[in-house]
């Protein structure tokens, strides 16, 4: 493929004190790709995802979004954004869904979804409200729009968080273990919403422990181990005939 990737990460390193968490990870995501990132805890997969939009500052590496390179300079120990405006603009186009939802508790569900497009993108209120209600219907939670986050179950909160992310019309969405904080019976409803998004052709990077989901939904799967990419390929390759011993062991223990 000759077109530019939507998102390209080049040789990302991250060091916490004396610990090398990421030891040079590269990844390309083209429009429409659904890439699942797997690995045992401590493999660095969440850190990697958080480095993409600088929730965590990488120690070394390059981040290229839509062909334009994020301007990074050397800070005290890590790279920091040199151009805050460029960073916030990139963040506006990259959605992020957290493990712990992180809805703003002082706003209603509808206000949470409207906040970004209304006050960050400065879109007209009427249009934003209509779109927000549409998205809440889409994630199946429209009837709760005037409630506060604390009045909702975890699965419902995570669906609202996904709607909040979609409201920004992001080009890429990053999911950081979106179902790990949920009770088992609530996992399905969130995965269902994510499956629909994948089928719509959205570009997604998903850090997850849900193996079956990753196998069915992903276009590519990446297996991280101790801060490096241990295995990479289509779901059939990675799940069906993994080359690395560690990946084989990880996958057999999961099924």
């Amino acid at each position: 493929m000759s077109k530019t990737p939507a998102l390209e990460l080049i040789n990302i390193h991250k060091r916490f004190g004396d610990v090398d968490v990421l030891k040079g990870i590269s990844l390309k995501a083209y429009d429409g790709d659904v890439i699942s990132i797997l690995g045992s805890s401590g493999s660095g997969k969440s850190t990697f995802l958080r480095c993409i939009n600088l929730l965590e500052n990488p120690t070394k590496g390059e981040i290229v979004f839509n062909g334009s390179k994020l301007d990074l300079v050397q800070g005290d120990s890590d790279l920091v954004a040199n151009n805050m405006k460029q960073l916030t603009q990139m963040r506006q186009q990259i959605g992020f869904v957290f493990q712990s939802f992180n809805l703003w508790p002082h706003m209603t569900i509808l206000q949470n979804v409207m906040e970004g497009p209304l006050n960050v993108l400065k879109r007209p209120k009427k249009e934003v409200a209509e779109y927000a209600e549409h998205l809440l219907r889409k994630v199946g939670i429209a009837e709760k729009k005037d409630m506060y986050p604390n009045q909702l179950s975890g699965g419902q909160q995570q669906r609202v968080a996904i709607a909040r992310t979609l409201a920004m019309d992001p080009q890429v969405i990053l999911f950081d273990e979106p179902t790990s904080a949920l009770d088992p019976e609530l996992v399905g409803e969130v995965l269902g919403v994510m499956r629909n998004l994948a089928e719509e052709g959205r570009t997604m990077l998903i850090v997850t422990h849900e193996m079956n989901f990753a196998r069915e939904v992903s276009s590519d799967v990446v297996f991280l181990h101790q801060g490096v990419v241990e295995e990479k390929g289509t779901p059939d390759q990675v799940f069906g005939s993994p080359k690395s011993e560690r990946c084989k062991a990880f996958i057999s223990s999961a099924f």
């Binding site: 990139m90 506006q92 712990s100 960050v120 909040r164």
Partner: peptide, 12 residues
């Protein structure tokens, strides 16, 4: 986490 939620929507 609530602060990070602000960052990821690109708030100043």
């Amino acid at each position: 986490g609530e602060v990070e939620a602000c960052k990821v929507v690109g708030m100043s």
